[in-house]
């Protein structure tokens, strides 16, 4: 079992909002109000305990930290005013930075969104699922998109999605509208990313 004495200190110092959990009184309000409690292995409250106990591997590899739907209930209801959601996101970012990806699918989904924003300035909801599926490679991607086909077909029938979702894996689909200021936006995204990397590196 991993025990790393200084893990709590690491979290307080390096994780966004990490220091806030110092005042947690273990009341369990976050655990009982989190809608995902039954889908989590632990709960925010228990994760804080594991952090205090120095269980570094267990916390940073725990899928729970990337499960949060950002519903903000915990942040509103924690009697100690701890921004639980921010700590969860902070831990997820920190784990990613350290090269740990606790939940591959969420990470890939995020990357697919990023690609869309970078290429057009907006999120194209028809291409994001394709890209998301393809992050696993072609075969797995096709399987995954087939499992979404029912909903996709129905959406198409209801004219809520354009058929390009079903154009077989073709990354650059003409007609996705790009914003006018795209070049500047990309420059800015590159810079913002570089600044982020400098700060973190």
């Amino acid at each position: 079992m991993d025990y790393q004495q200084d893990f709590a200190k690491e979290v307080y110092e390096k994780v966004d909002s990490g220091a806030e959990i110092k005042v947690c009184m273990q009341c369990g309000v976050c655990a009982s109000t989190c809608p995902l409690r039954e889908k989590m292995k632990y709960s925010p409250r228990k994760l804080w305990t594991l952090i205090r106990a120095g269980r570094r591997q267990e916390v940073l590899n725990c899928p729970d930290i990337m499960l949060c739907t950002s519903c903000y209930t915990c942040k509103v209801r924690c009697p100690r005013g701890i921004p639980v959601i921010d700590v969860m996101h902070g831990l997820a970012h920190y784990a990613l930075e350290k090269g740990i990806t606790p939940r591959e699918e969420t990470k890939k989904f995020g990357e697919a969104f990023w690609d869309s924003i970078y290429e057009t300035g907006r999120v194209d909801e028809a291409t994001v699922p394709i890209k998301y599926c393809l992050k696993d490679g072609m075969i797995a991607g096709l399987k995954k998109s087939l499992s979404m086909l029912d909903i996709g077909m129905a959406l198409m029938k209801a004219k809520r999605l354009t058929p390009k979702l079903f154009i077989p894996p073709n990354f650059f689909i003409p007609g996705s509208h790009k914003i006018k200021g795209l070049k500047d936006l990309q420059k800015m995204l590159d810079k913002a990313k570089a600044m982020g990397a400098r700060k973190e590196g």
Binding site: M66, L96, W114, I117, V123, K193
Partner: peptide, 8 residues
């Protein structure tokens, strides 16, 4: 994607 993107 905020959750999985760099904050900046």
């Amino acid at each position: 994607a905020a959750h999985s993107l760099d904050h900046r």
